[in-house]
Design a protein around this nucleic acid. Structure first.
Length: 262
DNA sequence: ATGGTAGCTGGGCTA
């Protein structure tokens, strides 16, 4: 069984120990990380290599930053989302991974822009970035491989994925433009793995640090794993591990996980 | 009620 996970850690330096602890207990084959908030050279590579993971890292000073950890060999890495050579934000990394027995899977770690306030230049950047992601996803789907696009999409797909939809109607995470952009990506032929297994409301992946959001379970489902048809055909289970959000000094996000029969 | 928290950085931005 191949386990692929995604986790926005909100600073890998603050979350290095938690990340190592979670890797030991959940033992994913692949972990996509977002919001490293460190430069590539500052990534605590040794900690993860000691646990048996290869690391592909795209860092940036202060903000953003994405990585892919893999127990299996990483053959090829792409460190930019095509479509805008002037975009310097570290929000996308993709790896082709060889599996034991001769198979392979392609995985991307995605950190989509937040986009608030909306409307604004930030919101325009979010929508443009999502359009680039759609174009690239179309390219990848043409390979007809097992593919997982995993990460923090900063999009609440449905009203059932937010504790108070009315309060979030004008937020960049829930605006119709954002949800439409997400839906256009799905319509290429990708499947939201958690929804494919269980479409109930309240499967949150993020709880704000403020106002006791975690204690009141006032969360959002904004972290997603999208699968190609070849990966979906092998989907065994998908879910959210809430435990790390309850730990001391947590990230505001918690991991999302899929198991594939590969 | 224009707060409240966290991280990076060294004042303000991002989320």
């Amino acid at each position: 069984m191949l386990k692929i996970a995604t986790w926005n850690v909100n600073s890998i330096k603050q979350r290095e120990a938690a990340c190592a602890a979670w890797l030991k207990q959940a033992a994913p084959d692949v972990l996509c990380l977002q919001e490293l908030k460190c430069q590539t050279e500052g990534f605590p590579r040794g900690t993860f290599e000691d646990l048996g993971y290869n690391c592909a890292v795209l860092g940036q000073k202060s903000f953003n930053g994405v990585a892919i950890l893999s127990k299996h060999p990483i053959d090829e890495t792409i460190t930019a989302l095509p479509g805008d050579a002037s975009d310097e934000q570290a929000r996308y990394i993709e790896a082709a991974i060889s599996l034991p027995g001769g198979g392979a899977i392609r995985a991307a770690s995605i950190y989509a822009p937040n986009g608030n306030p909306a409307p604004s230049e930030k919101f325009d950047y979010k929508l443009a970035w999502l359009a680039r992601l759609k174009a690239h996803a179309q390219t990848l789907l043409a390979y007809e491989e097992a593919l997982a696009l995993a990460g923090d999409y900063n999009i609440i797909p449905r009203a059932a994925d937010v504790y108070n939809p009315a309060a979030w109607a004008e937020d960049a995470l829930f605006r119709l433009e954002s949800r439409a952009a997400f839906r256009r990506i799905l319509h290429l032929g990708l499947t939201d793995a958690v929804m494919a297994c269980d479409s109930r409301a309240g499967q949150y992946t993020f709880w704000d640090y403020q106002a006791g959001a975690w204690q009141k379970d006032q969360g959002l489902r904004i972290d997603h794993i999208l699968l190609s048809p070849q990966a979906l055909a092998r989907l065994a289970s998908a879910g959210i591990d809430r435990k790390p959000r309850s730990w001391d000094k947590p990230s505001d996000h918690t991991p999302v996980l899929v198991s594939l029969d590969l």
